[in-house]
């Protein structure tokens, strides 16, 4: 197993105090490994942006500890009877931030600077000499495919190009971690795909750890190896993307994985229903057709949300079982005998 690069323990963040307090994050623990692409997903207001902004202390947590690249950025220390949060000094934090850079949904480029000067910016802050910064900025623009736009201003670029400049800028200080806060949410699907491919490429070429915040499951599906699901400020689930896709065990996870998902409550009360999960078997497995042919049992599909990831089928399907108990049992045992498929009968009371 690879070394961990970001460790977050028992992190909480509360905005406001007293009765108006909002608990944005509650007891979040995370372990992001060096060199991986880690996804944090949640619906709007789930606290994912707050979480990522705690990682570089743009947001000061209320309690808990944050360690990035072996350096503690925030931790708890005893204070009289209780504990209080302590953070690194401002100077240390500024240095640490060169190792944890960030890209944003709205790109946040300096509008009065050329692309080249934008990429030079973090190096200027770090005191790198002009000529050296320029040279590296040119290389980085080349790396993100915008070598010809060095002297263009951000206003002359498309959204995808702006994000590429922002990525080049974020890489200027050779960071260990690149935080992406909804970096593709403002882009169209084609541009999103190209930015994601670039992130994946940079992750492989440079070994930079990438943390992706998103509300789009497709983004996680595309590039992440592991994912954490946030729901109302609470960590609902975390693990390998494939595991969570194949078997989302919490409601929050199911809602995100299958947004149009099937809910048992919607099934008419008079029938028995079974929920089938596809756990990565081949997509070319015509389950329902073979059930009808092999067992002579006809089932009704009440709803389905399946997708294929790298040729493997993931998803759930809700079937209504035949009225006849023998047929129902036959169908159930047939489905259960299939590889990479689990079935559970759904309990409901109309």
């Amino acid at each position: 197993m690879r070394d961990s690069i970001i460790q977050i323990e028992h992190l909480t963040k509360t905005f406001g105090t007293g009765s108006s307090a909002v608990h944005a994050l509650e007891d979040i623990s995370l372990d992001i490994r060096q060199g991986e692409i880690f996804g944090i997903i949640g619906l709007s207001g789930a606290g994912k942006s707050t979480l990522v902004r705690c990682m570089n202390l743009l947001e000061r947590p209320t309690s808990g500890s944050i360690t990035v690249g072996g350096q503690r950025l925030a931790w708890m220390e005893p204070d009289g009877g209780s504990e209080k949060l302590v953070t690194v000094s401002e100077k240390e934090l500024r240095l640490a931030r060169r190792d944890i850079t960030m890209i944003f949904q709205s790109f946040n480029l300096l509008m009065q600077r050329t692309c080249l000067k934008n990429v030079c910016f973090p190096m200027e802050l770090a005191g790198v000499s002009g000529a050296q910064a320029r040279k590296r900025a040119e290389e980085l623009l080349e790396l993100v495919g915008l070598g010809d736009k060095a002297n263009a201003y951000p206003a002359q670029l498309s959204g995808g190009q702006k994000q590429r400049v922002a990525i080049a800028r974020a890489l200027a200080t050779n960071p260990k971690v690149l935080l992406c806060d909804e970096a593709t949410s403002a882009l169209d699907p084609t541009t999103t795909a190209s930015i994601l491919a670039l992130l994946k490429d940079l992750n492989e070429k440079l070994g930079v750890t990438v943390v992706v915040i998103t509300h789009q499951m497709s983004v996680i599906e595309e590039i992440c190896s592991r994912v954490a699901i946030l729901d109302g400020g609470v960590m609902a689930e975390q693990g390998n993307v494939q595991d969570i896709f194949s078997n989302p065990s919490t409601d929050a996870a199911r809602r995100l994985v299958y947004p149009g998902g099937v809910r048992a409550e919607q099934v008419p009360a008079s029938s028995r229903a079974v929920r089938i999960s596809f756990n990565g078997g081949t997509v070319y497995q015509p389950l329902i057709a073979s059930l009808a042919i092999d067992c002579g049992v006809k089932v009704n599909i009440l709803g389905a949300d399946t997708r294929s990831i790298n040729g493997h089928a993931f998803g759930t399907m809700l079937l209504s079982l035949p009225e006849d108990p023998n047929d129902a049992a036959k169908a159930l045992s047939y489905i259960r005998a299939q590889p990479n498929v689990t079935a559970e009968e759904v309990e409901y009371h109309g």
């Binding site: 240095l95 850079t101 944003f104 509008m111 973090p122 802050l125």
Partner: peptide, 26 residues
């Protein structure tokens, strides 16, 4: 744009650098 200021902060800009390199030129 507050986002631009925040981006500069996330890159480790000091207050003085924010004034001279972000606020005033932008």
């Amino acid at each position: 744009d507050a986002g631009v200021v925040e981006a500069a902060q996330s890159m480790g800009a000091s207050t003085l650098q924010l004034v001279w390199k972000v606020y005033l030129p932008e």
